Computed example of a mutant assay.
Amino acid sequence: MTARQPRIEREVAMRLARDEYTRCADLMARLEPAQWSAPTANSGWSVRDTAGHMLGMVQMMAGLPQFIGQMSTSLRQARKAKAAVSIDFLTALQVRRNAALTTDELLERWRELTPKAVRGRRRVPGFLRGRALPEAQMVDGRLERWTFAFLVDVILTRDPFMHRLDICAATGLDPAPTAEHDGRLVADIVQEWADRHGEPYTLSLTGPAGGTWGTGGEHITLDALEFCRIVSGRGEAAGLLATAVPF
């Protein structure tokens, strides 16, 4: 099984990571007190729970002790439960560990740690970037291998991007997408989606983050951010849109 590699150039990936963290901070700062308790598309998670998980991912990449601690704890819990993958244990751990923070404290720690998380991601050495993660990942009901580079350059930015959309959907706030940032993320997601299904297609995505890809095959037209939500498993999917992309 060949481990999946990133398509995005490393420097572009780090710029997208930095900008996504900033956009998430700006969104959290806009939340009214009542909006933190709004339910999201993530089963059982409020906006506050979602933000706690997001902070946990930042904490994990901001320092090696956190990375080792979170990963080892979640892997141990998954093995004990005889689960195929540990991601649900990891995210639950992050939500629990950050649950006692006030929303002001959460935002303060987010702003403090995200520059460290970008540096931590940037500093992953080349010999490790090309290696496969020790655990296979579940995508669309199938296990697959990812390289450390795919996790660090791609998934760890897609994750807060999608949760930013979740928070906006739950609260009615505008994600204010741009072609330069969101459009670059969307283009990478489209390319991976096309690679995963391998069929001819014509995809027209609307909005500032949109564009047109492919020729022939199934014709699909919808909003660019809604496309991302659907292929992430957050909406009704049929035809080629049922092809899952990891976030």
Rank of each mutant, 00 (worst) to 15 (best):
H53F: 06
P134N: 01
L75V: 07
F127C: 03
L75N: 03
S86H: 12
R111S: 06
K116N: 11
K116G: 04
A136V: 02
S74K: 02
L128W: 04
A99H: 15
L93E: 01
T102R: 09
T91H: 06
P65R: 08
P115I: 03
G69M: 02
Q59E: 14
M61T: 09
G56M: 03
A78N: 05
Q94S: 08
G63Q: 08
R129P: 01
V118K: 00
Q94M: 12
V95G: 05
V85L: 09
V118Y: 00
T91P: 02
L151C: 11
T73S: 07
E105C: 14
M61N: 08
G69Q: 02
D140T: 00
V124C: 11
L133R: 03
M57Q: 06
M60W: 09
E105M: 12
R111L: 10
W110Y: 12
A78P: 11
R97A: 06
T114M: 12
D88H: 12
P115D: 12
L101T: 06
A51Y: 02
L143W: 07
R79H: 02
L107H: 11
R76L: 05
D88T: 13
E144T: 10
K82T: 02
D88W: 09
D88K: 14
S72G: 02
E105N: 11
Q70K: 12
M60G: 13
I87S: 11
L143F: 08
R109M: 13
F148D: 03
S86P: 13
I87T: 13
S74H: 01
D153Q: 09
S72K: 06
L113W: 02
V152G: 04
A83E: 14
G52H: 13
L128G: 01
L106W: 09
L128V: 03
P65C: 03
F67W: 15
L101D: 14
R122N: 12
F148C: 07
T91L: 04
A78F: 02
I87A: 09
R119T: 13
K116S: 15
G141S: 05
L55W: 00
A149I: 00
R79D: 01
V58D: 03
